[in-house]
Simulated assay, not measured.
Amino acid sequence: MSTKKPIFSEKAPAAVGPYSQAIESDGFVFASGMLPIDPATGNMREGTIADRAHQALTNLKAVAESAGCTLEDAVKTTVFLTDVNDGKEVNAVYAEYFSEPFPARSAFQVAALPLGADIEIEVIFRKKN
């Protein structure tokens, strides 16, 4: 029988709806899509898409740490962008947070994201035994 354990980090923004920052189940941690919200202010990070990618990944790192993981434990990521042309800048930032072997990844251009964000990133982590 599988169990579901909610994961919460005060170093990441609270969920903006009826969902958890992450759920741990059967040795995996499923992190919800993370927006580039600065948890200290509750506001969307200003600046470039690179700045916002850094914020989203910093938030995911905090959630991972609350679950007893690191970004090295990431096995799958999904990147949502409102402009796929931002991919090159996002890739440069992404490579600062993940190393080889890189997690599997999907990236999509979407029409809109919550709160008017232009990037959202979700991650699945595999916990070490």
Rank of each mutant, 00 (worst) to 15 (best):
M1A: 15
T3E: 14
K5F: 11
I7A: 05
F8I: 08
E10P: 07
A12Y: 03
P13H: 13
P13A: 10
A15G: 07
G17W: 04
P18I: 11
P18Q: 14
Y19I: 08
I23T: 13
V29T: 05
S32F: 02
S32A: 12
G33F: 00
G33W: 00
L35N: 05
L35H: 02
L35Q: 00
L35I: 03
P36I: 06
P39W: 01
A40W: 05
G42F: 05
G42P: 13
N43S: 14
M44S: 03
R45Y: 01
I49Y: 04
D51Y: 06
R52I: 07
A53V: 09
A53H: 07
H54S: 06
L60I: 12
K61I: 08
A62G: 09
A62M: 05
G68P: 13
C69K: 06
T70L: 12
L71V: 03
E72W: 11
T77C: 15
T78F: 09
V79N: 06
F80V: 07
F80Q: 08
L81F: 01
V84F: 15
K88Y: 12
E89S: 14
V90D: 00
N91M: 09
N91I: 05
A92H: 04
V93G: 11
A95T: 09
E100H: 13
F102W: 07
P103L: 05
P103K: 07
R105M: 13
S106M: 11
Q109W: 11
Q109G: 15
V110F: 03
V110I: 07
V110R: 03
A111P: 07
L113E: 01
L113D: 02
P114V: 01
L115K: 04
G116V: 00
I119K: 02
I119H: 02
I119V: 07
E120Q: 05
E122S: 14
E122T: 15
I124P: 07
